[in-house]
């Protein structure tokens, strides 16, 4: 078990498609047994192998599948409580009648988020990572199989709320979207730079609270741009709908 954020081995992730009369499928991952042979001499094996290779290979496979079917896949990442789910709900509610959407929800526990999405009648799979602190590409591979998305659609992957670990794990997404709320402070991007470096889009949420918080928006954007000058910003409020139009325009352009 990791002392930093509590992730551990535990049992494998649980991946469940939320349906009206739901039943759960559990996938456990088994590993091969090794066979030992006796050799007494020492040998050096030069490997030069990327440790994340397995994740990266499966991510590439996911990406190929998405490309072939013209599925635009987004990996939504943020700290817990930034309003990712509310932002997603708003987007789905406003666009689901015009475009096919599919959702993968990642959380350590509960199907609460998937139930919120299911209430909007959008196909959704909940991945519970157990002790795990991030989604990995094999979980997406399994979840997508259950979703069986149509061609020319959007796949929204809501990662586990964690601004550190998900940065390292490519899921095969078309774009990575980091959501930050203005309640988090202007210097979040330089406190957790990896996530901002690996993202393509930065959603600044909870703008409706700006009259009370008086956040220095230039400072926030400057910090984010120092980490990643290529970030595209959208300032929104998922609650009031302010700024969402520009985000929708960008999103629709992608497909």
């Amino acid at each position: 078990m990791c002392g930093t954020c509590g992730c551990g081995t535990g049992s494998g992730p649980t991946i469940v498609k939320i349906e009206d009369h739901g039943h759960s499928h559990e996938h456990t991952h088994e590993h091969d047994h090794t066979h030992e042979h006796s050799h007494s001499h020492k040998t050096v094996i030069e490997l030069e192998q990327d440790i994340l290779q397995n994740n990266n290979l499966l991510a590439a496979r996911n990406r190929g599948y998405f490309d072939a079917k013209n599925i635009f896949a987004l990996n939504l990442v943020s700290s817990p409580g930034s309003g990712k789910t509310s932002f997603l709900e708003r987007t789905l509610a406003d666009l689901k009648d015009q475009y096919p959407f599919y959702v993968i929800e990642g959380d350590q526990q509960t199907a609460n988020d998937a139930n919120r999405i299911h209430a909007l009648q959008v196909p959704v799979v909940q991945v519970n990572t157990g002790k795990g602190c991030h989604l990995e590409s094999d979980m997406i591979y399994d979840a997508v199989k259950q979703l069986a998305p149509k061609d020319n659609s959007f796949l929204m992957i809501e990662n586990v709320g964690n601004l550190v670990c998900p940065a390292m794990f490519d899921l095969g997404e078309s774009k990575r979207v980091v959501v930050i709320s203005i309640t988090e402070g202007e210097d979040k991007p330089i406190k957790y730079p990896d996530m901002f470096l690996t993202s393509d889009v930065c959603i600044i949420n909870k703008m409706d609270l700006q009259p009370y918080l008086k956040v220095d928006m230039d400072k926030l954007r400057n910090y984010a741009q120092q980490v990643n000058p290529k970030l595209v910003f959208f300032e929104v409020s998922a609650t009031t709908g302010e700024g969402m139009k520009k985000w929708y325009d960008w999103l629709i352009e992608q497909i």
Binding site: C2, C7, H31, T34, E36, H37, I45, C165, M168
Partner: peptide, 27 residues
């Protein structure tokens, strides 16, 4: 943090290599 995933990934890769090399142990 993700370091545990990384460490477990290392163990998996090492296991495969040991098996491939038909050796007894990793020193």
């Amino acid at each position: 943090m993700h370091e545990l995933s990384v460490a477990l990934g290392i163990v998996d890769l090492a296991k495969k290599e040991l098996h491939k090399a038909k050796a007894k142990q990793i020193d």
